Computed example of a mutant assay.
Amino acid sequence: MSACRSRRTGRRRLVLFAAGAAAASLTLSACGEGTSGGSAQTRFVQGKNGIATVPKADRQPAPELSAETTTGTKKLSLADFKGKVIVVNVWGSWCGPCSAEAPNFAQVANETKSKGVQFLGINTRDTDKTPAVSFEEEHKIPYPSLYDPEGKLMLRFPKGSLNPQSVPSTLAIDRHGKIAARSLGPLTAADLHKMIDPLIAEK
Score class of each variant (00 low, 15 high):
45 V>R: 12
46 Q>S: 07
49 N>T: 12
50 G>L: 06
52 A>P: 00
52 A>W: 12
53 T>A: 11
53 T>D: 11
54 V>T: 08
56 K>G: 00
56 K>V: 15
57 A>F: 01
60 Q>C: 02
63 P>L: 10
63 P>H: 08
64 E>W: 01
64 E>T: 13
68 E>Y: 00
70 T>S: 07
71 T>N: 11
71 T>M: 10
72 G>S: 15
75 K>Q: 10
76 L>A: 09
77 S>F: 09
77 S>I: 09
78 L>R: 08
78 L>K: 04
80 D>S: 14
81 F>Y: 15
83 G>P: 10
84 K>M: 04
86 I>V: 15
87 V>R: 05
88 V>M: 08
89 N>P: 09
90 V>Y: 13
93 S>E: 09
94 W>L: 06
96 G>M: 08
96 G>K: 12
96 G>R: 10
97 P>E: 09
99 S>K: 15
100 A>P: 00
101 E>P: 09
102 A>T: 09
102 A>M: 07
103 P>C: 11
104 N>P: 06
105 F>Q: 01
105 F>L: 15
106 A>Y: 03
107 Q>S: 12
110 N>W: 00
110 N>S: 15
110 N>H: 10
110 N>M: 05
111 E>P: 04
112 T>D: 01
114 S>Q: 13
115 K>Y: 02
117 V>A: 05
119 F>M: 05
120 L>M: 12
122 I>S: 02
122 I>M: 08
122 I>P: 02
123 N>M: 01
123 N>D: 15
123 N>H: 04
123 N>G: 02
125 R>T: 08
